[in-house]
């Protein structure tokens, strides 16, 4: 799978994003890492140019409620509804339902194992193969975990 790992907004810490990028590479995926401080518009552009099937958003700044929905909306507007979106970082449990409602299929917090992220992607691929909706703009209540 081609996966973009992105750092939206002004958050300047990317150790987590890099660990995840490396783990996904070791799991056999082609991973494009965006680097720090990307706007939602830039992230949508990168997903489009790279023809990625999945997008992982890493955010530690607390701005997830503003940034993550903006990315999801941008993907839908640009006709990239089939892209699988997942998120990670510091995202409080109380905020997660609204992100899932935006089409985010999995949220991984501190302590999550990289193997679990690979399992999620495998489950998402399995759903695509059997024709079940999983993309950010595809109507589906499905979420990981």
């Amino acid at each position: 799978m081609r996966i973009v790992i992105a750092k939206p907004g002004l958050d300047g810490h990317d150790r987590g994003a890099k660990v995840v990028a490396r783990a996904l590479r070791d799991g056999g995926h082609e991973v494009v890492y965006t680097g720090l401080r990307k706007t939602p518009g830039e992230i949508v552009r990168i997903v489009m140019d790279e023809d990625a099937s999945a997008l992982g958003l890493s955010t530690l700044s607390g701005a997830h409620d503003a940034l993550v929905p903006a990315v999801c909306e941008g993907l839908r507007e640009e006709g990239l509804s089939e892209v699988i979106v997942f998120a990670g970082g510091i995202i409080p449990f109380d905020d997660r339902d609204s992100l899932h409602d935006q089409g985010v299929r999995a949220i991984f917090g501190p302590g999550a194992r990289t193997s679990e992220i690979l399992e999620f992607l495998e489950a998402a691929s399995g759903r695509i193969e059997s024709g079940e909706p999983v993309g950010v703009g595809e109507n589906s209540g499905w979420r990981w975990g």
């Binding site: 590479r25 070791d26 082609e30 494009v32 890492y33 680097g35 990307k38 830039e42 552009r45």
Partner: peptide
């Protein structure tokens, strides 16, 4: 693994 880490574009200013 057959995977790849592709991070050239992060060094290209104005790429995105």
């Amino acid at each position: 693994s057959g995977g790849a880490l592709l991070a050239d574009r992060m060094r290209m200013q104005a790429a995105d």
